[in-house]
Amino acid sequence: MIWRADTAAPSPRPSVLPWAVYPDWDAIYADNVGRIYRLMFSKVGNRPDAEDLTSQVFTAALGPLRPGAEIGQVRSYLTTTARTVLAEHWRRTLGHQVTEIDPDILDLAELPPGAGDDGDAGAQAQRILDALPERYRQILTLRFLRGYTVRQAATELGVSVANAKVLQLRALRAAARAETAQGVRDVEANIVGEGEAS
């Protein structure tokens, strides 16, 4: 069923219908700010950078995007804008594309808010942790997934703070190497397409 958001809507969730339209800029923003933030957070891993990059995406989009735009088009536009914003972030900071946004990821265009994002990130983290010895898995779980401070983690594990720091560094190094052996970085492994030009 095709409908437009400025007419009687049969569903309260226009996001599942990418061809519906946004009635105004506030609707564009409200429906996408969480998606873009979560996308950026998954690529930079910290709130300050994720907020900055989210702001950059919407500021860049403010001019080109107009009310009446189709939802799928808006989300695709925001995704591709996010891609270049992220690339520029890594160029400015570590000088290397540490993470990338593949525009073939269509979550933003097709999924309702919140769907897929956390699950994918959780699965990736679990794969990383599963490849580690118990002690390493514990310190990384406490620090990254549960938000423990290093002191809280040290107490939980019954070690000194200094030992917890060393354990964390070794665990992270081991995790990075385990990914090498595992050969898995993210979940969109089924992309077989190619770039194009007319």
């Binding site: 930079v44 956390d118 990130a121 983290a125 990254f144 997934l145």
Partner: peptide, 24 residues
């Protein structure tokens, strides 16, 4: 870089990843 990437992957499943703060 691999360690940073792994840290980001882990942080992406952490408490801050679920969404932006209402204040932001």
């Amino acid at each position: 870089l691999a360690m940073v990437r792994t840290a980001i992957d882990l942080a992406a499943a952490g408490p801050d990843a679920h969404g932006p703060s209402p204040a932001f």
